[in-house]
Design a binder for these strands. Sequence first.
RNA 1: GCUCCCAUCGUCUAGUCAGGCCCAGGACGCCAGGUUUUCAUCCUGGUAACAGGGGUUCGAAUCCCCUUGGGAGUACCA
Length: 523
Amino acid sequence: MRLVVSYLTFAAQFYQFMNTSVRVRFAPSPTGPLHIGGVRTALYNYLFARKHDGSMILRIEDTDQGRFVPGAEQYIIESLAWCGIHFDESVVAGGPHAPYRQSDRKTLYKQFSDKLIASGHAYYAFDTPEELEELRKAAEAEKQTFTYNTSTRKQLRNSLTMAADEVDKLIGEGTAFVVRFLIPENTEVIMEDIIRGKVVVKSETLDDKVLYKSDGMPTYHLANIVDDHLMEISHVIRGEEWLPSLPLHVLLYQAFGWDAPQFAHLPLLLKPDGNGKLSKRDGDRLGFPVFPLQWNDPKTGETSSGYRESGYFPDAFVNMLALLGWNPGTEQEIFSMDELIGAFSLERVGKAGSKFDPEKTKWFNHQYLVKRSDSSLAEDFSIFLQEKGITSDNETITKVVSLVKERVNFVKEIWNESYFFFETPTEYDDQVVKKRWKAETPGLMRALAEILATIDAFEPSNLDEAIKVWIETNGYGMGAVMNALRLLLVGAAKGPHLADIMAIIGKDETLKRISKGLSSLPQ
RNA sequence: GCUCCCAUCGUCUAGUCAGGCCCAGGACGCCAGGUUUUCAUCCUGGUAACAGGGGUUCGAAUCCCCUUGGGAGUACCA
């Protein structure tokens, strides 16, 4: 007969009824830069917390001393801050459950490991990594997988197979040991996931995971459960890669006699082409950032590009990420953080992985760029101008920005669409010359220059009117005149309305460009 | 291999829980046309999907089963 174990305790359900506060955590490991999948997990946690007036906690899970990467923790904090994801409790802000870095909580975990041993839910194991490695290899040679579980633990060196005094002796001598969880036999672990529904696993397919390492540190599994319990986490929202660990975690809560939080396992972010989890290499290969901020690896010296440095607005980036795997069920696509908070629900998170689309990400940035005020855009753009050694007044830059912003996705692209406002053309596009610069054009341009010279107020409306009258009076073709004029003023077949260009560069510059062009182009 | 998860246009997705309103809607991309003094924007239109097979049902994208495909996990990593 199977013993049915369900983590779905009444208390967990009561969180809703009792209006007990929602408390969620983002718990990254500082082993490198946080990639956009991690940012999305943090974002969903944040949206959920804010939506329910709950608390958002940042906990650093650095129980693997061998994988510590200097700067990674700071990177994570800075990245999330850039995204507008703020924490109520964290290594920086502190909080009622401090410390929030697991390495700083090290001494805490042993008592919980001991407790599990005392209650018979865990045991000591003395097998060395080398011995286990050998067993794995041997199994692999026979196309099998070695698993430390019900079927093998009776043959291994642990407190299940050894006499109590021998175990005591070994430990007393300082022999290295780990603590393993004793997976119960013949049990069905029944789990409830907010996104996936009911998931059932037979306990004998699970293995006796290490809870406490020989270096005196807990593994992720132990530390995670202990801290989530101690920190009173109500909902665990994390990536789908953790789903296979859920049975263990549920069993752990049971072993401790604790109420488990509710779980929600998010679908993964997949590479844009083909299949598989999005990775750093995909970004390099396909030319888009996979990290929020630029990252300089302290070990390899390698630099990875970031969304911030690539010119993305944080709110556009967040908006894009929010819609990857979640949707509001309406046709709205542009959301501020506050709107996301209002609309978000875990029930509307999909189950299937989402392929990341760099093109749509650019579209989002375009939407935000167009929406941004001309003056704030001008402020950003003037930094690019300064770098190019170009000086111009704010009013001009603002006007220029307003004329070209519809055409670009990024602030840095404004230059390509507006350089001719700041620089006199030095060369003329061959194709355009061929197409627009006819034998009669020079005469036309000279005559036009004379007309323009008589206009004092270089305003778009005046210019349009004067040119129109002149063209109509003389029976010229609008295209013949304007395209040639554009060639002289811009040097290419591009740019906004000509009168707007002339009004901004002014009368002197306009006339100068015409005469300069006339002297360098064929007569 | 084993365990678990997943499956609608090229991509993100609506619709699936409560079967008919769906010969499947929106967005990105792409293509065409229109507006325009250029380019772009913009507007209009188009392209394009229920993985396959069985059931259940008067009726299935929606429910069930199988197959196929994809993903994740399988460490003294998280």
